[in-house]
């Protein structure tokens, strides 16, 4: 077996993975959400992708329409929005001025699109996870396919036959049911949610760590 990374290497790597998931994939990492999306796609089919609309163009068009309809009154209503912009001497809005670019509209290209990812993209992510594990095992010299989980404790507790498979299926079912019910797992709630101080994520993470601690201590006491 290999020597596991020291905590600071592992912590930095995990944080980098979550950050690059946002930067490269364009959405926050949430793996149980991918499982749910996959299930939904199989059950209901993937919904027709909504036509891509340039949000900035849409808002500009709506503003233009508003101006055309209500004229000066709309300009006065829109003005308070400008307060968010960096203080710069603004010329009094001329009635015929084109719709001002709103600061809020300047969403970077990284922003999440509302459209769902296609089914195969989730499969691709899961396959990439497995490939990462395979590369790690191959480089570390522990790539031996076997119908087991590697670990003395696991084998001591559940053996290496049918019982272990039943326990894993039961545990897996609790994971699938529980993560969908809680709306997230270790990545979505634990990593990304807790670091954004989201109340639901803090409650969920405390709960799943608490339950894991409780059951593991119980298993240890029984063994």
């Amino acid at each position: 077996m290999i020597e596991f990374w020291p905590f600071w290497v592992g912590g930095a790597a995990l944080a980098a993975v979550a950050l690059f998931h946002w930067i490269l994939v364009g959405r926050l990492m949430a793996v149980s959400g991918r499982v749910s999306a996959l299930i939904d796609a199989v059950r209901w089919g993937v919904p027709e992708p909504t036509p891509e609309i340039d949000e900035a163009a849409l808002i500009a068009a709506m503003q233009a329409a508003t101006m055309a309809e209500f004229g000066d009154a709309a300009a006065a209503l829109l003005a308070p929005d400008g307060e968010d912009a960096p203080a710069e001497p603004e010329a009094p809005a001329a009635p015929e001025a084109p719709a001002e670019p709103e600061p809020e509209v300047e969403v970077a290209p990284l922003a999440v699109s509302a459209s769902r990812q296609p089914l195969w993209m989730h499969v691709l992510f899961f396959a990439s996870l497995a490939t990462g594990g395979l590369v790690s095992a191959a480089l570390g010299g522990f790539l031996r396919p076997e119908l087991a989980l590697r670990g003395e404790r696991f084998t001591a507790a559940f053996g290496d036959g049918g019982l272990q498979l039943a326990v894993l299926a039961l545990g897996g079912a609790m994971i699938g049911f529980g993560t969908r019910m809680a709306g997230g797992c270790t990545s979505g709630h634990g990593l990304c949610g807790v670091s954004r101080a989201q109340p639901g994520s803090l409650a969920a993470t405390a709960s799943f760590f608490g339950a894991g601690i409780g059951l593991s201590l119980l298993l240890r006491a029984l063994s």
């Binding site: 545990g171 897996g172 994971i175 529980g178 969920a204 799943f208 339950a211």
Partner: peptide
């Protein structure tokens, strides 16, 4: 849901 997930994690050593 999270309690169920945590117990399942402890049993199977897995998360999604």
């Amino acid at each position: 849901g999270a309690v169920l997930f945590g117990a399942g994690w402890a049993l199977s050593g897995a998360c999604p």
